[in-house]
Computed example of a mutant assay.
Amino acid sequence: MRNDGTRVLLVEDEAIIRMDFVVGLENLGFDVIEANAAATALGLLDAGLVIDVLVTDIDMPGDMNGLALAREVRRRCASCRIIVMSGHSTPESDEMPERSVFLPKPLSPHDLAAAFT
């Protein structure tokens, strides 16, 4: 699967997991911007970053978890694809933003990329 440069914002607080996803997705042709927390991700969006896909873990440090981040990104960008992931919890369907997908960890960059479509 080769991509045409779709821009992905990957939000994951675990550095090793984040690095694995970034390298894997970049090898598949995605343009990946990384953030270690929801506040960092929102700062990038506030600074004008335009994304096609948000991939976020649920459990992160700070005042905002990944579900709240996903809902905020959906509010700002109706066309953005949103992938929510977790190895610890499974959200209820009413907790997820419209047109978003939940993936349980562990998963690979190929699993993520397959969910982008």
Score class of each variant (00 low, 15 high):
K105R: 15
F102D: 11
I33N: 12
V84E: 06
D111C: 08
M85I: 15
D111S: 12
V32S: 03
D59Q: 15
D111W: 01
A78Q: 10
A115F: 00
G62Q: 11
G66V: 04
R71K: 11
E98Y: 07
V8Y: 09
V11F: 04
G24V: 03
A38V: 01
R18N: 10
R74F: 08
E26R: 15
S93N: 14
V55C: 11
D111I: 00
G5A: 02
V11I: 12
K105Q: 15
N65Y: 06
S86L: 11
R71S: 07
R76P: 02
R99M: 11
H88G: 14
T90D: 10
L54R: 02
K105V: 02
E34T: 08
V84T: 09
T6G: 09
G29L: 09
T90L: 09
D94P: 07
S100L: 01
R2P: 04
N36M: 04
G66A: 01
L44M: 07
F21T: 01
G5W: 09
S93I: 13
L45Y: 04
A70S: 06
C77D: 14
D46L: 04
P91H: 11
R81L: 10
R74H: 13
H88D: 13
D63V: 12
P104W: 00
D59S: 13
I33E: 06
L42C: 00
D13P: 07
F21Y: 15
E95T: 05
E98H: 10
I83L: 12
I83H: 03
V101T: 15
N36I: 03
P106F: 01
L49T: 04
D57H: 01
C80Y: 06
R74W: 06
T40P: 00
C80L: 01
F30I: 07
M19L: 13
P97Q: 05
E12P: 12
F30M: 08
K105E: 13
P109E: 08
E92T: 12
L107V: 01
G5D: 12
I83C: 06
D31P: 06
T90V: 14
D31F: 02
L42E: 04
P97C: 09
P97N: 09
D57W: 00
M64L: 10
E26M: 00
R99H: 15
V73R: 04
E14L: 03
D46P: 07
P109G: 05
M64H: 02
D20L: 14
D31M: 06
V32R: 10
L67R: 06
V50E: 12
P106M: 07
R76F: 08
I82R: 02
I16D: 13
G66C: 11
V53S: 05
L49Q: 13
N36Y: 03
S86M: 12
V53I: 13
M64P: 01
S100W: 00
H110V: 14
L67E: 10
L49N: 11
S79Y: 04
V22A: 09
E95N: 08
R2M: 14
G24E: 09
D4I: 01
G5I: 01
D52T: 00
V11G: 05
